[in-house]
Amino acid sequence: MSASSLPQASSYAPAVDHLFDAMLLLCGAVAIGVFAVMFAFCIRYRRGHAADREGGNTRLGVELAWTLVPFALFLGIFGWSIGLWAKLRTPPADSVPVYIVAKQWMWRVQHPDGTREIDTLHVPLGQPVRLVMISQDVVHSFYVPAFRVKQDVLPGRYTELWFTATRAGRFPLFCSEYCGVGHPSMRGSVVAMAPADYARWLHAQSSPGLAARGAELFRRFGCSGCHDPGSGVHAPDLRGLYGAPVPLSDGSVVRADDRYLHDSIVLPRSQVAAGYAPIMPSYQGRIGEEDILALIAYVKSLEVEGGQGHAHP
């Protein structure tokens, strides 16, 4: 019944709906049972109606039965839902990343090839898509009812969400965490297209790649002044940095993942690379989250030349 009212447009949706329907069946039965018993007793044992009223005192066995049976059922539901949940939390290896920046009150989308859109997200059918999301101000939440997925989008921290669209069409996208007066207008749509259509659409956008834009920004914001291999400033070479272990000045070692790169730009002083002075200025508030994503894409794209790994003095 539920399938008819809301489209099931992702690979995940049917599985969720099965669970939902099962719950509807179970809880519906319990609810009807409770009401039925209540009505039956009300009629049978109403004052003035002759009925057998002998006995019927507390019995331990009965109590235990209706303690343990619901508990067992609950465990069943729990197990079922956790299976689905684990699936939702582990994006497949072949998923393509798409970056989402939320701000009051719009969704900005960046595809890996640099294509940008606002309040609309185009995705190819059948391809797992992994959203990497961050907010520029308050907490928002990315919600696509037709896909049965939702994830809060936090300031200062990346969160992820993945899905595979299975049905072509345009599906509503809502912000579902209250974020101020514009909260209800923070709506958009997800457009799922056949892969060929998607390729055509992407091609029509003809934008420089995300990393290419990042390269442009890298110069514009003056990063290159310090980080270019030829510069006179003592700053780390960023080639091959992504994914490499970075020794920090406090003696610990972290892996240079998205979060680390992000924090290196907005909060450079939180983790200072070993061997360098903390002279890098903070770009907090000066670079929007979208541009940061482009910069990160650029840093990631910096290949190691001559097989030499990311070197720290």
Binding site: S249, L267, R269, S270, V272, P278
Partner: peptide
């Protein structure tokens, strides 16, 4: 009120 610290760890 008056926070004038500077240096790598000032923020935290």
């Amino acid at each position: 009120l008056r926070y004038t610290q500077d240096g790598p760890l000032a923020g935290k």
